[in-house]
Computed example of a mutant assay.
Amino acid sequence: MSAKQSRIAVVTAGGPHVWVIVNALRDRLGDVTVILEEPESKKRLLLRRARKLGWIEVAGQLGTMVFTRLRKLVLSGRDRAALTSRGMNTEPRDDQPIVNIASADSPDLADAVKKLGAEVVLLAGCRMLSQRTLDQMPCPVLNYHAGINPAYRGMNGAYWALATGDAGNFGATVHLVDAGVDTGDILHQVRGAPEPGDNLTNYAMRLAAMSRDICTQAVEDVLEGRAKPTMSNLPSKQWYHPTVWFYVWTGLTRGVW
C-alpha cells in the first residue's frame, strides 16, 4: 500500500522477527512505515560469497542453510506461539503502511524515504547499502544487527558467540550505518542468554525479542537529537554461515545447535 508521511522508516526484506521490532516501535513511538524490498537471490549471494571464500566453504554453508530451513518449517510455529503468549506479534498489523521497492541498495530507497519525510531509517534484515546509496539518504541510517559488534559482524552472531565459547556476548547491536559490514559506530547493545531448546533456526527471533528496547531507544535518541555513538574495544571479525560439518560438530560436542 502507499504510505503517508512518517518520521520513522524501517527497511527490511521481511520475516517474523522483523515484525516483532516494527510493532514494538509503533507501540512506543507511533507511526512507522515499512519499506519492503524483494529478497536478494540466494544464488547471487552464494556466487558472490564463493568468489571470496571458495566453493568448498560455500557448499558447506549451503548445507547448513538447507538443514536449518527444513528444521524451521517444523519449529517456527512453536516459536511464534511462544512469543505470542508473551504479547509479541510476529505479523504485520492490518493498518501497517508498507512501501514496496525492488532493492534497498538503489535510488528507490532514497526516493521513498524523501517522500515519507522520514527523519530516521532503521535497517532490519535487508541488503547492505553502498556508499552511493548512503550518500543519497536525507536522514540518519541505523542498522539492527543480530550480534555484538564488532566481534560478531556479518551472519549468525549469536550462534558464533556460543560456538566459540563466548556466551557472554550473546546479544545484538543497533549502530550507525557506513559502507562496511556492521562497522558503524555503536548506539546501543543488549546481551542475554538463549533459552533451553534454542538453536540456529530461532536465535534471530530470540534476539529480536531481547532487542525491542534498544531499537526503540536508538530511534528515539536520533529523533530527539541525543544519540551518542560509541566505539568498542572488542576485536573485529566478520562471520558467515557455519559449514554443515562444523555445525554438526558444535552440536554434538558443545550442545550448540
Score class of each variant (00 low, 15 high):
residue 68 T to H: 06
residue 127 R to S: 14
residue 81 A to D: 10
residue 52 K to Y: 03
residue 252 L to Q: 04
residue 27 D to S: 15
residue 249 W to R: 07
residue 120 V to R: 00
residue 55 W to Q: 07
residue 173 T to S: 12
residue 126 C to G: 02
residue 201 T to S: 13
residue 53 L to E: 09
residue 165 G to S: 06
residue 90 T to M: 04
residue 38 E to W: 00
residue 202 N to H: 02
residue 192 G to K: 09
residue 129 L to T: 11
residue 57 E to K: 13
residue 84 T to A: 15
residue 158 A to Q: 11
residue 226 R to W: 00
residue 25 L to A: 03
residue 135 D to V: 08
residue 55 W to V: 15
residue 70 L to V: 06
residue 55 W to A: 13
residue 172 A to E: 03
residue 203 Y to N: 01
residue 96 Q to T: 13
residue 9 A to C: 10
residue 80 R to N: 08
residue 123 L to T: 02
residue 158 A to Y: 02
residue 188 H to D: 04
residue 171 G to T: 01
residue 24 A to L: 15
residue 250 T to Q: 06
residue 61 Q to V: 06
residue 249 W to G: 01
residue 170 F to C: 06
residue 206 R to I: 07
residue 212 R to L: 05
residue 117 G to N: 10
residue 237 K to E: 13
residue 32 V to T: 10
residue 230 T to F: 00
residue 198 D to Q: 07
residue 193 A to M: 06
residue 222 V to F: 00
residue 88 M to N: 05
residue 133 T to M: 13
residue 243 T to H: 02
residue 165 G to D: 05
residue 179 A to G: 05
residue 19 W to R: 01
residue 58 V to E: 14
residue 103 S to V: 10
residue 220 E to A: 11
residue 101 I to S: 01
residue 60 G to Y: 01
residue 167 A to R: 13
residue 139 C to Y: 01
residue 26 R to F: 02
residue 253 T to V: 15
residue 65 M to D: 01
residue 155 M to D: 01
residue 220 E to I: 00
residue 187 L to I: 12
residue 231 M to T: 04
residue 205 M to L: 15
residue 146 A to K: 03
